[in-house]
Amino acid sequence: MVWTIPNTLTFLRLLAAPGVAVMFLYFHRPWADWFALTLFVGAAITDWFDGYLARLWKQESKFGAMLDPIADKAMVVIAIMVLTGYNGMAPWLILPATVILFREVFVSGLREYLGPKAQLKVTKLAKWKTTAQMVAIATLFLGTGLEYLNGVAMQGMTPEQYVQAVSEGLADPIRACGKQDCASTANQVGMVLIWIAALLTALTGWEYFHKAVPYLKDEP
Results as ranks from 00 to 15, higher is better:
D47A: 06
N7M: 01
A186V: 03
G205H: 10
I100T: 07
V76R: 01
V41R: 04
W128T: 07
T185C: 00
A136D: 01
R175V: 12
T46W: 01
R55H: 07
Q119F: 11
W92C: 00
A176M: 12
T185R: 05
K129G: 13
T131A: 15
A202M: 12
G42Q: 02
T144C: 05
L146C: 02
I45V: 14
D181P: 08
P96V: 05
L93R: 09
P96F: 09
P220C: 12
E147L: 00
E168Q: 15
L149T: 06
G169L: 13
W128H: 13
A65K: 14
I100H: 07
T98R: 09
Q180S: 09
V166T: 13
Y52F: 14
I78Y: 04
I194C: 05
I94C: 01
A153Q: 13
F141H: 07
L37E: 00
V99H: 05
W57M: 08
H210L: 11
T98M: 14
Q133E: 14
S184I: 03
I174E: 11
T131V: 15
A44Y: 04
K217H: 13
Q155F: 06
F40I: 00
W92T: 01
A132K: 10
E112V: 13
F35R: 02
G109A: 12
K73T: 12
W34S: 08
P18M: 02
D172W: 11
G51E: 03
V192Q: 10
G178K: 15
Q59K: 11
A54K: 03
L200C: 07
K121I: 10
M66I: 09
M191D: 05
D218H: 14
F49W: 10
L39T: 03
S61M: 05
N150D: 04
P30D: 02
D72W: 06
P91M: 08
A126L: 11
T38M: 07
Q59W: 02
G156T: 07
L15S: 00
Q155G: 01
I80H: 00
E160D: 14
M81I: 14
G19M: 00
D33L: 02
A54H: 03
A97P: 07
L95T: 12
M1L: 11
L95A: 15
